[in-house]
Design a protein around this nucleic acid. Structure first.
Length: 585
RNA sequence: GGCGCAUUGGUCUAGCGGUUAGGACAUCACCCUCUCACGGUGGUAACAGGGGUUCGAGUCCCCUAUGCGCUACCA
């Protein structure tokens, strides 16, 4: 669909319509009649932006300063709706959201869809849904029903703000701070080659900015010829002067002043990122911009644009990217090459969202770990994240560490919680597991409650996809009846142990009674019931209590490693327990 | 090429002129009256390199190397 500004832009280049428009303006009419005195900047601005009807003052009033307490941070997450949520995007949004809400400020979502080529149909709803899942909550933005705006500073979608940008671009032209440039891409390419040939800096600046000093007459002439144009901001900068920027993460950073006349409005009438950022973040009253450090180099441009507009710039925090190691080198996690770059990866693997969040928090502020240790049960939202504690270099993503944090997070959940999260995950990714969990909820919850509670809860699940393998023996129809008995114990001894166990086994025994019975079996069959005795005189015994226990364990679960045997039997029930053991006789 | 940013064990990092360079993950050993997972104790392991400044440098300055980013009418 053609956007209104496209229609207007096209219209501009068609002479009859142009003349029609011009005829509305008496001054221009006069100019054409007399053909003498040069058109002034105001008239030029009208010629360049005939569609603009509002004034800067109108927008300044429409979007008043926010009435917030001192220190309240207004910040945003501003993604492009490409349908791919990068872990780095989640990282940035988490940091922004925490900073805004910790300070009693505002966090909003702005969609930067000025690049229509990369856009995906349901890109926006995907972003909103993923962030909601991760508890990254917005106060304003494209977050209402059917992606409608919530908040007084909208529209929050850049493609719907063309008139806003054009109003301010027009003002700059009136003030002589911006001008149209008719250079074609080929001409610019040529300029660049010449600059390279003479080893000059590349870019549209100084004497290379050929359209910078076009007279208004020349401009009118070119427009009459139907030439396309972009609008560039006239840079007041001098390259050999330095500017100092104080970044909230990088600290003091020094750059040469920008002297390039950057494009602010493209030939299709849409603003560039630079201009949209400056206009939007001013009008939306953003006071802190948190973004990837690939933008750090653009700071001279952005600061200069704020100054040219006469606006106070926001504070900036440039965060370092999450990296990946490939061979000997580090590189940014790549959307194309690395499956773990996508937030959906963690979802599919079955990492709890809280675990991913806590891992990200741990990368952001290393003080998170000691805090977590001294506040084991406090929600992470109580942790005060500090931008100044963030590292200026990129961290390698460490799945092993994530796994450790995730095990910790899951270990603190109740059996009931583990059950419902696993079920929810299995519903999407493992129908067999889902069926196992839903046929008898009570049984499944008991299973997940083994060795829970107390100050040393069981810590063996890192992600929901681990679960099936760990619980399969609880289900008669999923149990493969393969018994991994240790070769250390003879078949004869094995059967003797199992027989003795069955003889004395009483389902209702207390745990200590049950254990004492195993000890008794050890003594009876020549195994050490006490590990210290065994270690002191290993030759006097066939083995120790571990060996005896493991025979029972394998008969029960098929494997040599399991959670607490007593609890497993309590969950499986008397019949199932006896049946398993008999099978091995 | 130009301009920036970065560089402490395998990984994430603490350190902000004087430390036996601390912690976490990983790893190894041992301990924990049932294995595993925990938990505990201990071990291996780091200031990219070179110059300065200083009584003294991981910390300040310069150079080099390496990595990353920007250098578009992409964000």
């Amino acid at each position: 669909m053609l956007k209104p500004y496209c229609v207007i832009a096209v219209g501009l280049f068609s002479i009859p319509i142009l003349l029609q428009r011009l005829s509305k303006c008496s001054k221009i009419e006069k100019y054409f009649e007399k053909g003498m005195s040069e058109m002034d900047n105001k008239e030029l601005a009208n010629l360049l932006f005939p569609d603009v009807t509002k004034t800067p003052e109108y927008y300044e009033e429409l979007y008043p300063k926010r009435n917030l307490p001192e220190g309240a941070i207004v910040t945003r997450f501003a993604p492009s709706p490409t349908g791919f949520i990068h872990i780095g995007g989640l990282y940035a949004s988490l940091i922004a959201e925490r900073n805004a809400h910790q300070s009693g400020g505002v966090f909003f979502l702005r969609i930067e869809d000025t690049d229509k080529k990369r856009e995906v149909a349901d890109g926006v709803s995907q972003i909103i849904n993923v962030l909601r899942d991760f508890n990254v909550n917005f106060d304003e933005g494209v977050i209402g029903e059917n992606e409608t705006d919530v908040g007084a500073y909208g529209p929050y979608t850049q493609s719907k703000r063309a008139d806003v940008y054009r109003t301010f671009a027009k003002k700059l032209v009136e003030e002589g701070k911006a001008y149209p440039c008719f250079c074609t891409e080929e001409q610019l390419e040529l300029t660049r080659k010449r600059q390279e040939a003479v080893k000059a800096r590349t870019g549209y600046y100084g004497q290379w900015a050929v359209d910078r000093n076009l007279s208004n007459d020349e401009i009118v002439e070119k427009i009459n010829q139907g030439l396309k144009f972009v609008v560039r901001m006239r840079s007041p900068g001098v390259n050999n002067r330095k500017i100092l920027h104080k970044d909230l993460i990088h600290g003091k950073v020094e750059f040469p002043e920008n002297d390039i006349d950057h494009v602010i409005i493209k030939s299709d009438g849409i603003p560039t990122y630079h201009f949209a950022h400056v206009v939007d973040d001013h009008l939306m009253r953003t006071n802190l911009v948190i973004r990837g450090d690939e933008w750090l180099s653009s700071i001279p441009v952005h600061l200069q644009m704020f100054a040219t507009m006469g606006w106070e710039p926001p504070k900036y925090a440039h965060i370092s990217p999450i990296m990946k190691k490939e061979g000997e080198t580090k590189r940014k996690l790549s959307k194309r090459k690395d499956s773990e770059a996508a937030v959906s990866y963690y979802f599919e693997e079955g990492y709890p969202n809280v675990a991913v969040t806590e891992y990200l928090l741990n990368i952001a502020n290393s003080s998170f770990e000691p805090w977590r240790r001294s506040n084991p049960m406090t929600p992470y939202t109580e942790f005060q994240i500090k931008l100044s504690d963030m590292n200026a270099s990129g961290a390698l993503f460490d799945l092993v560490k994530l796994n450790d944090i995730s095990k910790d997070v899951i270990s603190k959940m109740t059996g009931e919680e583990v059950y419902s999260y696993t079920k929810e995950w299995a519903e999407k990714f493992d129908s067999e597991l889902h069926e196992m969990l839903t046929r008898n909820k009570e049984y499944a919850v008991k299973m997940f409650s083994i060795e829970k509670g107390g100050n040393k809860p069981r810590k063996d699940i890192g992600k929901w996809s681990d679960v099936k393998n760990q619980i399969s023996y609880f289900f008669e129809d999923k149990f493969d009846h393969q018994y991994d008995f240790s070769e250390k114990i003879s078949e004869e001894d094995r059967k003797a142990i199992l027989n003795a166990y069955l003889e004395t086994y009483v389902f209702d025994d207390e745990k200590q009674v049950w254990f004492d019975k195993i000890k008794a079996i050890c003594d009876k069959l020549g195994f050490a019931s006490n590990n210290k005795d065994y270690k002191a005189n290993p030759d006097q015994y066939k083995g120790n209590i571990s060996d005896v226990s493991n025979v029972i364990r394998v008969a029960l679960t098929g494997r040599q490693m399991s959670p607490d045997m007593y609890e497993i039997m309590q969950v499986m029930g008397k019949e199932a327990t006896i049946k398993r053991i008999r099978e091995c006789l």
